[in-house]
Design a protein around this nucleic acid. Structure first.
Length: 316
RNA sequence: GCCGAGGUAGCCAAGGCGGUCACGGCGCUUGUCUGAAAAACAAGUUAUGUCGGUUCGAUUCCGACCCUCGGCA
């Protein structure tokens, strides 16, 4: 069975820089598992550009970057104006996975979007029912109560289980109920990988501190200009611009809030994101956690990966 | 020093003509997740500046004090 290593964990734990070192050691290449790093033109605010190193060893290509010689796939694969989902991600990422294996390289799946990782590695099934854009537009005009009543009529079982106030979920549930297909519940058979999951974390306060520091840095590195450029390109109303970091930068550019408020807002947004990531990853009992606040954690990771590649027989 | 405004959770804040008071928001904590996932949604969490008076009962009324912010000096 083919092997792969997953490096996951909350944001700003140094997943990518550790993965780059592992790639040098184990002849590896990286597949990013991050829902925002997939977007073009969003480099600073999504953490693609490191804030603590020189940028000189980065080469950007369409659909991947090369950082100190190591390719990172699934960067810059889509325009912010395009709709993008876990489905699009997993299809393309799976191809990248195969081509890495064909080149006799070792794949490291690295990122903080747990949903994407779980679908790519086959832990979670992906629905076979595509979105119905027309239906969505129609349903989007309806109120929460109307959507609830529609779902109650079409699918009572689903209604009993759903997040009753979550409009996006209600719409999706109606969409599935009204489609002719039968939703699959099986995992994706394409991906039968032997996975080692490495999780990077630290005490909560340490993570918040790292995130806060990162926010200060991206302001220095030009997040405001990057956001302004995205607005100039006409991406104001796109999905990724509504997410954290960029939405606050837009508010600042619109002079709705001062810079200090913008920075605080982004920090709090990231804290919440870190919590949600930890909740998600916390359910996966297979993740082997390493505390980045402890000295020498990277050596431990290296040993763990080595042992995994040796089939668990040898320990360095 | 005088005049005015005010002190309600970690922060911002609503309110009550006295009745186990205590709206919100943010933060923080815990969760949910099958084509939006850095998204969307849910639950939990803590409080009336200090001392005294009136009263059956004070967060609310009265007094003193302390502190903050304006203005005058």
């Amino acid at each position: 069975m083919n092997k792969a290593v997953v490096i996951c964990g909350p944001t700003s734990t140094g997943k990518t820089s550790l993965a780059l070192r592992l790639c040098k050691a184990f002849n590896g290449e990286i597949i990013s598992a991050d829902s925002r790093q997939a977007y073009k033109y969003m480099d600073i605010g999504t953490g693609k550009l490191p804030v603590d190193k020189s940028f000189s060893q980065i080469e950007k290509y369409d659909g991947f970057w090369k950082v100190i010689g190591t390719p990172i796939y699934m960067y810059d694969v889509v325009s912010p104006a395009k709709s993008y989902s876990v489905y699009n991600y997993s299809k393309k990422a799976q191809n990248e996975l195969l081509s890495i294996q064909e080149r006799q390289k070792f794949p490291f799946i690295v990122g903080g979007t747990g949903f994407y990782i779980d679908v790519l590695t086959g832990k979670k099934p992906i629905s076979n029912i595509p979105p119905n854009i027309k239906l969505r537009e129609e349903l989007n005009k309806k109120s929460l109560e109307e959507l609830q009543s529609i779902l109650r009529k079409t699918n009572e079982n689903k209604y009993a289980l759903i997040d009753i106030n979550n409009k996006a979920r209600l719409i999706r549930a109606v969409e599935i109920s009204q489609s002719k297909g039968v939703q699959n519940t099986e995992k994706d058979k394409n991906c039968s990988l032997d996975i080692l999951s490495i999780g990077l974390t630290a005490p909560r306060k340490f993570l918040y501190g790292k995130a806060d520091w990162w926010v200060e840095k991206i302001v220095e590195k030009g997040i405001i200009l990057e956001t302004k450029n995205l607005l100039d390109y006409g991406f104001r109303e796109t999905a990724p611009m509504k997410g954290m970091v960029y939405s606050s930068a837009v508010d600042y550019l619109d002079e709705k809030i001062p810079l200090s408020d913008m920075k605080q807002k982004v920090k709090w947004d990231i804290h919440g994101y870190i919590r949600r990531q930890l909740t998600w990853f916390g359910r996966n009992a297979k993740i082997r956690w390493f505390n980045i606040a402890e000295k020498g954690f990277d050596i431990e990771v290296l040993k763990t990966v080595q042992s995994f590649l040796d089939g668990g027989k040898k320990i360095l």
